[in-house]
Nucleic acid binder design. Structure first.
Lengths: 205, 205
DNA sequence: AGGTGTGAAATCGTTCACAGCC
DNA sequence: GGCTGTGAACGATTTCACACCT
């Protein structure tokens, strides 16, 4: 099934909200409730949820637990993803430490850096290896995805080294640069300054 | 003039690329060159640039320096924005240290935190104040925008305190939570785990 | 020939409006 | 009466196709 990107983004938000509602012992929500809490139109919420079958009750709403497990199923990965993080700087460490990585769906299993000071050390429980050993380690450790937190000058060469192993299928790029990857590798970027610039642009009307 | 959001995002990328091309003494580029380097269609590049007047030469391309100064003018803010950062954790420090903040267009001028250990200290040249003093300090220091790098539980209350001063016009939210703000305040969010989840979703086709 | 600028067409995503069920 | 599910209308963005300039 083909799902639009904005829908996937909202599904992640629905899951988060529903987890909170389960905690708070809320048993039923309407599309309007969900929309109000997350800043979406009720019709948007209904359309998103309807792509995956009829899950609500007309005249009533959605059962919170039932809907949550439904959304979890949609988002569930085929296996627990194994992630490598390239570039153990301040941003890299902040990400290793991030609460998101308590997820059951993925795990950071190795770090990579060029600095002799970092290679061989352990950061927040994760071992750091040399960039030069990366292709070998990526295969050995069965890593599917890398997150790139290196300076922009290093980004493309790190990508080239990582993709040379042939095991990498996805890259989450935090560096402020466009990278090119082999056919079939998916790249998403999180670019702090681009988001800030967009905000500032609209601030001047 | 009204500019679509995806266009603004690409304009920021064009500026980055053009800055590099100036460094490399490239004097002319075509829309196809730009598109190939950034992963856009040539027609997309031409359309984006044409919104702001005829700047290229038919049969030739765009003069790099001329185009850069044109794009800089489009993105230029009316004044240097003054930014406050709320939450001096690992992620907050990574952002303070980020190369993006060498920009002439904006500057982090103050930090805010609840921790007694951090209040009164200076981090990478930026003074840290108490959350309780935030409304006063935001006015005093003429801060327009805040960046939120607090745990999700604290996000909404920090927003409420910050917007109570009435001087905040924009918020860049790094916390994994939806926040509500008074009419007229613009919010952009950078959510690491949402981007990762989207990537992983498309990895399982 | 080569490359821009741009209306028109195509695509993608959101919102409406209402039939259908609880 | 209230709320879901969904085709149809709408709106936004991308891509095409070609006239026009150098």
């Amino acid at each position: 099934m083909k799902v639009a990107e904005p829908t996937v983004e909202r599904l992640v938000q629905y899951r988060r909200l529903l987890e909170r509602l389960v905690q708070e012992d809320v048993s039923v929500v309407s599309s309007r409730d969900i929309g109000d809490m997350l800043g979406y139109k009720a019709s948007q919420v209904r359309k998103d949820l309807s792509y995956f079958g009829e899950i609500g009750k007309r005249g009533v709403g959605y059962g919170v637990e039932r809907l949550l497990s439904h959304v979890e199923d949609i988002l569930a990965p085929p296996k627990k993803w194994r992630i490598g993080l390239v570039g153990v700087g301040r941003l890299g460490e902040a990400i290793i430490d991030h609460r998101a990585f308590l997820s059951q769906d993925y795990e950071i299993v190795a770090l990579f850096d060029v600095s002799e000071k970092k290679i061989g050390k352990v950061f927040l429980g994760k071992p750091c290896f040399s960039l030069a050993d990366m292709p070998k380690k990526l295969s050995e450790l069965d890593i599917d995805v890398i997150m790139l937190t290196v300076p922009k000058e290093a980004a493309q060469s790190c990508v080239d080294i990582a993709t040379s192993s042939g095991v990498i299928r996805g890259i989450l790029n935090f560096s402020p640069s466009s990278i090119s990857v082999p056919e079939g590798v998916i790249v998403y970027s999180v670019d702090i300054s681009v988001e800030l610039e967009k905000l500032l642009f609209y601030l001047k009307h």
